[in-house]
Computed example of a mutant assay.
Amino acid sequence: MGFDLEAHRGGRALLPENTLPAFANALSMGVDTLELDVGVTADGEVVVSHDRGLNPDLARDARGIYVRPPGAPLVKLRLDEVRTYDVGQIRPDSAYAKQFSDQRAVPGTRIPTLRELFALVRKSGNTGVRFNIETKIDPNRPDESLAPQAFVTRLLSVIEDEKFSDRVMIQSFDWRTLQFVQQQAPKMPTAYLTLQRGTSTVALDKATPWTAGFNPAFHGGSLPRTIKAAGGSVWSPHFGDVTAALISEAHGLGLRVVVWTVNKPDDMARMIELGVDGIISDRPDLLRQVAGEKGIALPAGTPVAP
C-alpha cells in the first residue's frame, strides 16, 4: 500500500459529518479511504455516527429543534426512531459551528446505515476506495453501546454480508474491540488509536481501561511495541504525539502509521516529511493539494450523487 489519504467522517469541514452527502463528495473528489464511525441501534442496525448518542449540536427533531444534551444513546433507539432526526446542519451557536464555519449545510440529511454507505460506493463504481471504520465504544460508559464482542460480531456480519471485507480496516480507541476483530476476522487489518494529551486513552507506564489489559510498561514504555504485541497492523496516533523516531520504530516493527486529525497544510506537509503512511483529515481537498505537491500519486475521483 502507498500513502493513505483519508477523509475524516467523510470530510466534515466541507459537508455534514458521517453523512451520504459528505461521503459522495469525498468519492467525487478522490480519496484512498473513507474514515467513519459506527454504532449499533436497539434493533441491531449498524449506523454511521461519531457519537454514541444523538449529538445535540447536530440532531434536530421533526419540529426542527436540536435535541437536548446529552442526547439519547443510539443503542436505546430503533433505526426508525434514529431516522426521524435531521443531522444536516450544525447548531449555529455551537463551538462546532465556529470550528467548521464553512461547512455547507444539507438540511434533511439523516444518519445513514453502513449498508447505505456501501450501496453509495457501489453506485459510484469505485472499486478501490477503502473504509476505516471506528467502533464507538467507551469502556467507562458500557450502557451507551453494545458490549465489545456483540458490537464486533454485528459489525463484521454487515461487512461480510455486503462483501466488503477485503476493503475494510477496523480502528478503535477501545482495544477490546480490536482483539475481537482479530479473533473473528484475522485477515482484516486493525488500527490502534491512541491519544496521549488531554483526556488520554493510553499511558506509557500502565494499562488503562482502553487498552484491553496491554501495559506499555511491559514493552519498554513503547506504544508501537505494545500495539505489535497486541496484534495490530496500524498505529493511529494523534498527529501531535508522533516523532520521526517513533515512526521509524513503528516501521521497524512492520506497523503502518496513520495520524489523525490533520487539517492545516503546514502540519500535513510536516507529517508527510516525517514519513507517516497516511493522514486522516477533515479537509481532504487540502490534503490532496499538499500530497500532490509532495509528489504523492493522488486517487482518482468517482463522481456520484448521494
Rank of each mutant, 00 (worst) to 15 (best):
T127S: 15
F100D: 03
A245I: 10
D138K: 06
A250N: 13
N263Y: 12
V48Y: 05
G292P: 00
G11H: 08
I170E: 00
E249G: 12
N18L: 07
G44F: 06
V158E: 14
E273C: 02
D4N: 11
P139S: 07
P303W: 08
D285N: 02
E116V: 13
E6I: 05
A245C: 12
P107E: 12
P142G: 15
A24N: 00
G125P: 13
T208Y: 08
F218L: 09
L287F: 02
S124R: 12
F164H: 09
E273M: 01
G2L: 02
E81V: 01
D86W: 04
R68I: 01
D282H: 07
Y192F: 12
T226R: 04
V259M: 11
N140S: 12
G240K: 15
D143G: 04
R83L: 00
P284V: 04
T177Q: 05
R110C: 07
V48E: 11
V258K: 12
D277A: 01
D138E: 10
F151S: 06
P112E: 09
G213R: 03
L155C: 15
F131C: 07
L287M: 00
S157H: 13
P21V: 04
G11D: 08
Q179N: 08
R283H: 13
D43L: 13
L54F: 11
A217R: 08
I279H: 04
A97L: 07
A203I: 06
P306R: 07
K187R: 14
G301C: 10
S222E: 02
H251V: 15
V129L: 09
G44T: 10
V31F: 06
F164P: 04
D102P: 03
V46F: 11
M271Q: 14
I159Q: 08
F23K: 05
E162L: 10
G39I: 07
S222H: 03
T211F: 01
T84R: 14
D166S: 15
E81C: 04
I137T: 14
L223H: 11
G252P: 14
P142W: 09
P142Y: 11
E6G: 05
L54M: 11
F100C: 03
P73K: 03
W210I: 03
V181G: 00
K187E: 10
K163G: 08
R78L: 09
R130W: 04
F23Q: 03
V258M: 14
K98E: 12
G275A: 01
A191Y: 05
R283Q: 13
D166H: 14
A244D: 15
T201W: 00
F218Y: 04
L120N: 10
G128K: 13
G198D: 05
V242Q: 12
I272W: 01
D102N: 15
E45F: 15
P70Q: 02
